[in-house]
Nucleic acid binder design. Structure first.
Length: 268
DNA sequence: GGGATTGTTTAAAC
DNA sequence: CGTTTAAACAATCC
C-alpha cells in the first residue's frame, strides 16, 4: 500500500531515468485506468518528476501526467514491453525505447492527463514533508479540528501523504491512542506527534518503503520498512515496548493497531 | 465464497 | 452551515 515514503522512493528512482524523455504514446489496457481530459501527450517531453502527497506528477512541456497508485499500483520502467504481464493496465512509451509500465491488480489506480493539475489535487492539503510544515504549522492545522486524531491524519485535505500504516506507527511512537480527540491532546503531545511523523517518514524512505503485498520500487525492488513496524499488522503480538498484546480496532472503517498500555484510552 | 484490504468521494448526521 | 461521521465504491486475492 503505497503511502508517502513509497511514492518518494519511486520518484527518486524514476526521475533521473525519465527526465528529458519524449513520449511517443500512452497505451491503456484497462478502460478506467487512464483519465484523459482531452490533451495529447504525443512528443511531449518530461521536464521533471515530483510528488505531492501520494500523487506522482510528471511535468511536461505543456500539461502534466499525474499518477495515483491507490492500493496496488506499481510503476516500473523497463527496456522493452512486458507483453504478457499480469495486471498490466497501461504503458507510457518513450522515444528512447524504454517503456514505463503501470501494473495494478485491483484496478483502483489512475493516470490523469491534464493541463491543470489543480483539478486533480483539489482535495489535497500541504505535503507531510513540505518544509513549510514546521511544528507550529502542523499544530495550527490539527488544533483547528475537533475529530479523532487518526481520522484527521487520514484526511488528505489536512495533511497529504499519510496513510494507514504510517499513521498507526506514528501514533504508537507518540504514545497517543488513535481515538483521542484533538481537544484532549496537550500542546506537547501534538508537538511530539509532529516529530514522530517526520522521523518515521524519513526512516521509511531510507528503508525504501514498506512492502506488505504489492509495493515495489520503480526498479522492481522491495521495501525494507516492514521489518521495522511496531504495531501495523501485529495484532495480538506483544508490544515491542512493554509486551502487552497489540489491539486491533476499526477507525473510519480502517484496521487500526495500537498498544492498549502504551497508548492509553483518552480521558473523556 | 465470504471476508479483508485502503484511499478518496459522496451522503448523511450532527 | 460548517464540521464530522458513516457509507459507498473501486476490484481482487486467498
Amino acid at each position: 500500500m503505497p503511502e508517502l515514503p513509497e511514492v518518494e522512493v519511486i520518484i527518486r528512482e524514476l526521475a533521473p531515468q525519465v527526465t528529458g524523455e519524449v513520449i511517443t504514446k500512452i497505451k491503456p489496457y484497462w478502460h478506467k485506468t487512464v483519465v484523459d481530459s482531452g490533451f495529447s501527450t504525443h512528443k511531449k517531453q518530461i521536464e521533471n518528476v515530483t510528488r505531492h502527497g501520494k500523487y506522482i506528477l510528471f511535468q511536461l512541456n505543456g500539461g502534466v501526467i499525474i499518477v495515483h497508485l491507490r492500493m496496488t499500483g506499481q510503476l516500473i520502467l523497463k527496456r522493452s514491453l512486458d507483453s504478457d504481464a499480469k495486471h498490466l493496465r497501461a504503458c507510457i512509451y518513450f522515444d528512447s525505447g524504454n517503456i514505463l509500465h503501470f501494473y495494478d491488480s485491483r484496478k483502483f489506480g489512475r493516470i490523469y492527463l491534464t493541463d491543470n493539475p489543480q483539478e486533480v489535487l483539489v482535495n489535497t492539503g500541504i505535503d507531510a514533508l513540505d518544509k513549510d510544515l514546521n511544528s507550529g504549522a502542523f499544530i495550527n492545522i490539527i488544533q483547528k479540528k475537533k475529530g479523532q486524531i487518526k481520522s484527521l491524519l487520514l484526511n488528505q485535505k489536512n495533511i497529504a501523504g499519510l496513510g494507514n500504516i504510517y499513521i498507526d506507527e506514528s501514533l504508537f511512537a507518540a504514545r497517543i491512542h488513535p481515538l483521542t480527540r484533538v481537544y484532549q491532546l496537550k500542546y506537547e503531545q501534538i508537538e511530539k506527534l509532529y516529530k514522530e511523523i517526520q522521523r518515521i517518514l524519513r526512516i521509511a524512505i531510507k528503508g525504501m518503503g514498506t512492502t506488505i503485498s504489492d509495493y515495489k520500487t520503480a526498479g522492481g525492488g522491495f521495501g525494507g520498512f516492514q521489518n521495522q513496524l511496531h504495531v501495523y499488522g501485529r495484532a495480538d503480538k506483544p508490544c515491542t515496548h512493554c509486551g502487552t498484546s497489540i489491539a486491533k480496532i476499526r477507525v473510519n472503517n480502517r484496521g487500526t493497531h495500537f498498544c492498549p498500555n502504551c497508548q492509553p484510552v483518552p480521558k473523556t
